[in-house]
Amino acid sequence: MSDTHDKSGEHGHEHPRHELGYYARRIYAIRDLLLEKKVLTQEDIQEQIDYQEQRSPANGARIVARAWVDPDFKARLIKDPKAACAELGIDATSLNEFVVLENTDKVRHMVVCTLCSCYPRPILGRPPDWYKSLNYRSRAVSDPRGVMREFGQSVGPDVEVRVHDSTADIRYLVLPIRPSGTEGLSERQLAKLVTRDSMIGVVDALPASAARA
């Protein structure tokens, strides 16, 4: 470890030490003390960093793409999401309870945590900044259509919007609608259409043309 940079294995944006603010310094102090007191080991910490790095929306996209091409898988995914994830080698066991919400032409789901920032991290990784923002947490429940509009998504008046406020141990993933004109696409190409935001439910999956980009 050098005096000016931390080389302890985190892969985020490295800040010169002298620029670190109060709380950033505080976590390095807390970390050092926890290691010295043997409350944690460096391996304990590194394990969590590695774990989170393996979690990304790409996992969710694989799940969704498989559900689009395989109706039996989709049925299993909705009935027992954790077991269906395991079929794809995606470990969802650390989730207490996992629920998949299927969008249709008539029903759109959107997920929020108004009280904190609950999110299906074992599947999608860490939540985006906007998901944790005060304005999203406030408006997702009272103005979901306005939020979707802001994200560029229009939803017709005949469609029922269902917002899920995850306040307990249940984690939700939206299964977006398969876009039209994607009949000829492979599962891999389909996965490219499944964005993180479409699995939170603020927008639909990308149009078919995006798979060829």
Partner: peptide
């Protein structure tokens, strides 16, 4: 026991226009 509880959005907020929209919350 924990339940998924459904609400009509129009019953939760004073000025909610889309009549069919719903809200679901996990409540003990």
């Amino acid at each position: 026991p924990l339940y998924l509880v459904g609400f009509e959005q129009s019953q939760v907020w004073n000025k909610y226009e889309a009549a069919k929209d719903k809200l679901f919350i996990d409540i003990y």
